[in-house]
Computed example of a mutant assay.
Amino acid sequence: MPLETYLIYLAAVGVFFATPPDTSQLLIISNSIRHGLRKSAFTIAGDLTANCLQMTAAAFGLAAIIATSASAFSWIKWLGVAYLVWIGVQLILTRDSTDEVSADVSGERFRLFRQGFVTSMANPFAVVFFGALFPQFIDPAAPVLPQLFMLGVTYIVVDGAILLLWGWLGIRAATALKRFSFGLVNKICGTLMIAAAALLATRDLQPQK
């Protein structure tokens, strides 16, 4: 892949992320406020794992199937919406932080990983997005798999860095919020989760123009 093409791809990915926080980023902010950046890294890992699977699906041509079968896949999105609303309502109804204390550290890590994974996988648009993005930067005269690998790894690195940045911003917010009651922190985080659900609900399976 020519350097010029790769730099254009980096710029395109950068422009894509130069937007207000999306569903996954709101989840990272919420978990960073409640659990800290180290624990919310498991949520980031879950999100990026889902992205890898979505890229693989796009590489095998499933993007076209999803794009033409939106009604068949819409239930995935709505399950994700319900999942996020459920988390949000639980947080809003929690009055203190006692639910955060758990001896099952591995269970908590898996729960945070699952939140990131489910939230990302609940957006089938991502497969369509990767299916539309990658072919624009692939040279058909060169081996395709190495190019897909480079594009995919680059996206994961940039996405991971952006999620860490949003998590850090969440930590900065937590410094101020935790001077107040934990109930207020939970209500704010729950509201973020419901906002993430609303964002997911408004997404469709058609690539954005």
Rank of each mutant, 00 (worst) to 15 (best):
Gln90Phe: 10
Arg111Asn: 05
Gln90Thr: 12
Ser71Gln: 12
Gly46Tyr: 07
Lys39Glu: 08
Ile65Asn: 12
Leu48Tyr: 03
Val105Ser: 13
Met55Glu: 06
Ile66Ala: 05
Ser106Tyr: 11
Val85Ala: 02
Arg109His: 12
Thr56Val: 13
Leu79Met: 13
Trp78Ala: 03
Leu37Arg: 06
Asp104Ser: 11
Ala82Ser: 13
Trp75Phe: 12
Thr94Gln: 11
Phe42Leu: 05
Ile87Trp: 05
Thr56Gln: 08
Glu100Ala: 15
Ala64His: 04
Asp96Pro: 11
Gln54Thr: 10
Met55Lys: 09
Ser71Trp: 06
Ala63Glu: 06
Arg111Thr: 13
Thr49Glu: 10
Trp75Met: 04
Gln90Trp: 08
Thr98Cys: 01
Asp47Lys: 09
Val101Glu: 14
Gly88Ser: 10
Ala67Asn: 14
Ser74Thr: 08
Gly61Thr: 01
Val81Phe: 01
Gly46Gln: 03
Ile44Glu: 11
Ala70Asn: 03
Val105Arg: 13
Leu93Ser: 09
Phe73Gly: 07
Ser97Ile: 04
Trp86Arg: 06
Ala64Leu: 05
Trp78Pro: 06
Val89Leu: 13
Ser106Pro: 10
Val105Ile: 15
Ala70Phe: 00
Gly107Ile: 14
Val101His: 15
Ser102Phe: 12
Met55Val: 01
Ile92Thr: 07
Val85Met: 00
Phe73Trp: 13
Phe110Gly: 03
Leu84Asp: 05
Thr43Met: 12
Asp104Gln: 09
Asp99Asn: 13
Ile44Lys: 10
Trp86Pro: 10
Leu53Ile: 15
Ala57Trp: 10
Arg38Pro: 08
Trp86Thr: 06
Phe110Trp: 08
Gly107Gln: 15
Ser106Ile: 13
Ala82Phe: 04
Val101Asn: 14
Ile87Gln: 02
Leu62Asn: 02
Ser74Ile: 09
Lys77Arg: 15
Ala63Pro: 02
Asp104Ile: 10
